[in-house]
Simulated assay, not measured.
Amino acid sequence: MKNKSLTALVSAFSRAYHAELNQLKIFDDSLARQLLTDEEYEGIAGNMSQGIAFFQPGFVGTQEQALRRVVDHQLSPSPLGRAAFAEQALEVATVHGARQYLIFAAGYDTFAYRQPEWASKLQIFEIDHPATADDKRRRVAALNLDQPSNLHYISADFSEPDWQSRMLDSHAFDLSVISFCSLLGISYYLPKDVFKSFLSAIAKLLPSGSSIVFDYPDEHTFTPQAGERTQKQVMMTARAGEPMQASYSYAELEHMLEDVNLLIYQHLTPAQITGQLFQAYNDSQPGQPITAFDNVNYCLAVKR
Rank of each mutant, 00 (worst) to 15 (best):
E228Q: 10
Q285T: 15
M256I: 00
I273D: 08
S284C: 15
A133T: 02
P116G: 03
A246Y: 03
G209A: 10
Q34L: 10
V177N: 04
Q100E: 06
F214I: 05
V213E: 15
K303S: 09
R33E: 05
I178Y: 03
V213F: 15
Q74M: 14
L122N: 11
F198N: 05
E242H: 07
P116W: 02
D174V: 02
P79L: 04
F59S: 13
P77Q: 14
A280I: 11
V95F: 12
A32E: 06
L143W: 10
S197A: 08
Q23W: 09
T274K: 15
Q63D: 15
D146Q: 14
K303M: 05
Y17L: 05
A172R: 10
L67R: 14
F27Y: 15
A133W: 01
T37E: 00
R137K: 13
D162W: 02
Q100V: 11
T223E: 06
A133K: 03
V70C: 14
L145F: 11
Q266S: 12
K204F: 00
R138F: 04
I202D: 01
Q233H: 13
L190K: 04
V260Q: 00
T110N: 06
L175A: 05
Y250C: 07
L21E: 08
Y248I: 02
P286C: 12
F173H: 01
R137D: 08
S210A: 14
H73M: 15
S155H: 08
M1E: 08
G61A: 09
I124G: 01
D28Q: 04
R82A: 13
V71R: 12
V95H: 13
D146M: 13
A106C: 02
I178Q: 07
Y108L: 03
Q245I: 03
W163F: 03
Y113E: 02
H255P: 03
G81N: 11
L35N: 12
M48E: 06
I26Q: 05
K196F: 00
L253W: 00
I44D: 08
D294L: 06
S11R: 07
R139H: 06
E242Y: 03
Y113L: 05
K196T: 13
A142R: 07
F13M: 04
A156F: 05
S247C: 07
Q164H: 01
W118Y: 10
A172E: 09
G287E: 14
T230A: 00
L36G: 03
F173M: 01
A133E: 02
Q65T: 03
D72N: 15
D283Q: 14
V296Q: 06
S211Y: 11
I52E: 09
Q34P: 00
I127M: 07
L75Y: 14
Q276S: 14
K4L: 05
I154N: 08
Y101W: 13
S155K: 09
S155R: 10
H171P: 15
I52L: 12
H18D: 04
S208V: 15
